[in-house]
Design a binder for these strands. Structure first.
Length: 485
RNA sequence: GGCGACGUAGCCAAGUGGCAAGGCAAGGGUCUGCAAAACCCUCAUUCGCCGGUUCGAAUCCGGCCGUCGCCUCCA
């Protein structure tokens, strides 16, 4: 079945057909690196991470570009976010940028978000941005006033096609303070003159200044992906004006479409409210990691559709944590059985019935993901797989190494490669070695106690291990241990 | 004020014309020395409310109520 994608530009699901067969170019608006990433960033980049992973699973070669904004993104006070952050921490602007860029990637790594192929920085693409502004001036779509260059929205009739807004309506009710020098309130800055105290500045044909925020995305997406390119992603809150401006600039400058499929993901809410500094409900990823397993946060995010809003609450997170443990519990059991089965089973064959079941799961999983990346549905399929596998594991019937390997491979493929929630190595597996050996000694001692029906000793061992986060589970094939959070 | 999204069980959340996925929680059972894990069963005659279209609607249309987002250079 073909992949269907909801295109915000056309407001409908469309079959995805890339520009060049076998290759997908995708650009996603990245963070402005002036502070730690919060769980809202987590949702956005996990959402797009899975989209990219699935495209790769489908066999496409994907080039994923995600910018790092390190200049030109202003606060409503007109202050540059980077400069403000640098002043706050008394460091050079680029020092601040470096710090938070690194921290951003560290946070994303913990969420198991694969890094983009290219993470271009706005400050590293100033000449290209000046080039675009020049071109817009030459073609008559922009005008310069006092060292500032603005895009003239009224010259571009298609302005508003993404967000469904009309330029005439923008005048009304807008809270934008209208700068006198603009010809129309909706005109937006392509280049800004640097005031004397503004230290991030570059020479340009219009004097010393810095680029407007929207320009970097137009420039860096097409520089690495061409124009037009396949997919542009970002949070809904950037649909207008950011994305609208990107389209206008790029299409006015080059006369060809900018991007073919627009994807917008829904925002993350905190107990029903938008996360906002002024509401004091901001949760950084680092804070969240202190309380929850990063993979559980990822799993929580995948429990909803990427286009929907998602409400972050303690209860919902706990449910997600439990749910993930359930899935990983099955994976752990399969891998343990593989290990204890040994590698000696040459000539063994996978059970045909099991293979058929696995194939059915794979098909249902793909159907869910093909339908506009329905991860919630895909996760449900994984739960169904878990029930089947657990039943198989408990049935007492012998399972060949090949059968177990096929099950494990499917988990790695769907749960690992695509959803990114099944690790290559579970924590217990990583800790094999000393921890495993120590725990096994205790398990043996406990087994002896149990044999003598010395329940007090047996339970004491179990309780004390539980107290340090190691859970013991007695089964027909002996006792297993796992890390319990 | 303008534009848009959503409202599904105690909670989270899929489903967009044919008798309501999945997870968490809860109750019962199997297994266990007791647990844990796992499995089985139960858990929305109903999808904010009121109308309409249809043989048939959670799904389409209209109205109302409620929540949220954008119009502020927040992912």
């Amino acid at each position: 079945m073909a992949l269907q994608i909801y295109n915000t530009l056309t407001r409908q699901k469309e079959e995805f057909v890339p520009l060049h067969e076998g290759f997908v170019g995708i650009y996603v608006c990245g963070p402005t690196v002036y502070d730690d990433a919060h769980i809202g960033h987590g949702k956005t980049y996990v959402n797009f991470d899975v989209i990219v992973r699935y495209l790769r699973y489908k066999g496409y070669r994907v080039r994923y570009v995600q910018n790092i904004t390190d200049v030109g993104h202003l606060l409503d006070t007109g202050e540059d976010r980077i400069l403000k952050g640098a002043r706050r921490e008394r460091v050079e602007p680029m020092e601040l940028v470096e710090t938070y860029t690194r921290r951003y990637f560290e946070d994303m790594d913990r969420l198991n978000v694969q890094r983009p192929n290219i993470s271009p920085r706005a400050s590293g693409h100033i000449p290209e941005q000046i080039e675009l502004v020049k071109r817009l001036l030459e073609k008559g779509y922009a005008y310069e006033v006092n060292g500032n260059v603005y895009f003239e929205v009224s010259k571009w009739p298609e302005y508003g096609k993404l967000s469904g807004r009309k330029v005439e309506e923008l005048k009304e009710g807008a809270r934008v303070e209208v700068r006198e020098e603009k010809r129309h309130p909706a005109d937006f800055a392509l280049w800004k003159r640097a005031e004397p105290e503004h230290i991030m500045r570059w020479p340009s044909p219009w004097g010393e200044g810095y680029p407007g925020w929207h320009v970097e995305c137009s420039v860096m997406s097409t520089k690495y992906l061409g124009q037009p390119f396949d997919i542009h992603g970002g949070g809904v809150e950037n649909k207008f004006p950011h994305h609208e401006c990107e389209i206008a600039q790029s299409e006015a400058a080059y006369g060809v479409p900018f991007c073919r499929y627009w994807l917008h993901n829904g925002m993350l809410m905190i107990r029903g409210e938008e996360m906002h500094k002024s509401l004091g409900n901001m949760i950084t990823l680092r804070q969240a990691f202190a309380q929850y397993d990063p993979l559980a946060i990822r799993f929580f995010i995948l429990g909803g559709h990427y286009r929907s809003q998602l409400d972050f609450t303690d209860e919902a997170m706990q449910a997600a944590d439990k749910g993930l443990q359930r899935i990983l519990g099955t994976v752990r059991a399969v891998r343990e059985r593989m290990r204890s089965a040994g590698s000696a089973d040459e000539a063994d064959e996978a059970d045909a019935g099991v293979l058929t079941m696995l194939d059915g799961i794979r098909v249902r999983f793909e159907e869910a993901m093909d339908d506009d990346f329905n991860t919630a549905q895909a996760v449900a399929v994984l739960f169904d797989l878990g029930r089947e596998v657990n039943t198989l594991l408990n049935s007492g019937q012998p399972l060949s190494g090949a059968t177990l390997a096929a099950i494990d491979a499917l988990y790695r493929r769907l749960g690992g490669d695509v959803l990114g929630i099944v690790p290559e190595q579970l924590p217990e597996e990583a800790g094999v070695g000393l921890t495993d050996e120590l725990v096994r000694i205790l398990i043996e001692m406990r087994a002896e106690a149990r044999q003598k029906k010395d329940w007090a000793t047996a339970d004491a061992i179990r309780d004390r291990l539980a107290a340090i986060g190691i859970a013991l589970e007695d089964g027909p094939e002996g006792t297993r241990w796992r890390l319990a959070r």
